[in-house]
């Protein structure tokens, strides 16, 4: 599904990613862990198409296409979804209006009929249940005045409505209390299928107790220095990132 080869990316002249290699197949869950500033969020943003980052080297293939040539909206329409670490507040645009525009843009791209207001609302209500979300959030402006937890839940709710093929969750666990974490993780698990894949970017192992990864990768200084199974996350939690730095593998 996704193949990243020797990806280098910089922002304002600072190179953040220095040769990332990663392969993600349908049905898999990959966790990317790493210390602060290692480039985890940069990788997530580059995959979603954030133009502020400049890709200087390497390539990314998604479903056989050159991902880096695609506009952010085209990536979304082709099934990529980024759950933001810091979801953006958009005053004046209601959650429903925004999500309906997004869903219909994606459906249109895929040659599906656009949903009318009634169909959309029934879909939305069904998906809100998965996330145990308060319906009043629907009519509020996107993320405006939401608590940290509500914002993160809203991200996964959007994911539930848009049904991406490749979901990238950027620090979705940060700012969540333990109950909210469980609900969000349950939501992600319910949305898993054999056809889609998930990349979970996280600093702590905590989230991985709920979303069980098939693979764990450790990103340090812009490179994946170690990869392994889910037990790697526990080892990391135990020994810390310095241990990985000292025992860095060659790139996977």
């Amino acid at each position: 599904m996704l193949e990243i080869k020797n990806l280098h990316a910089s922002i304002n002249g600072n190179e953040i990613l220095r040769g990332v290699n990663l392969r993600v197949n349908s049905g898999e869950v990959h966790a990317i862990m790493g210390p602060n500033g290692s480039g985890k969020s940069t990788l997530a943003q580059v995959l979603a198409g954030r133009e502020a980052y400049e890709v200087s080297k390497g390539n990314v293939t998604y479903e056989g296409n050159n991902l880096l040539d695609m506009a952010p909206e085209d990536r979304a329409r082709e099934g990529i979804f980024l759950a933001f670490q810091y979801p953006v507040e958009i005053p004046g645009v209601s959650n429903t209006y925004f999500l309906k525009a997004a869903l219909n843009a994606i459906r249109k791209h895929r040659g599906l009929e656009e949903l009318d207001a009634v169909e959309f609302l029934s879909l939305v209500k069904q998906r809100m249940k998965i996330l145990d979300m308060d319906q009043s959030l629907l009519n509020r402006p996107v993320n405006e005045g939401f608590s940290g937890g509500e914002k993160k839940r809203n991200e996964i709710f959007q994911m539930a409505v848009l049904e991406p093929k490749l979901a990238i969750l950027d620090e979705t666990d940060s700012g969540l209390d333990i109950d909210a974490l469980r609900i969000v993780a349950d939501g992600v698990n319910k949305l898993r299928t054999k056809e889609n894949a998930t990349i979970v970017v996280t600093h702590y192992q905590r989230l991985l107790n709920y979303i069980i990864p098939d693979f764990v990768h450790v990103l340090v200084d812009g490179r994946i220095v170690r990869s392994g199974g889910k037990e790697l996350a526990l080892e990391l939690e135990d020994k810390g990132y310095d241990w990985v730095r000292e025992h860095a593998d060659v790139n996977v």
């Binding site: 979603a48 502020a52 952010p72 909206e73 979304a76 953006v88 507040e89 999500l99 843009a105 959007q158």
Partner: peptide
């Protein structure tokens, strides 16, 4: 707001 524009586009809404 560039952040808001990117957020909307990342959901499939064109520029």
């Amino acid at each position: 707001d560039a952040e808001a524009l990117f957020y909307l586009r990342s959901r499939g809404i064109d520029s």
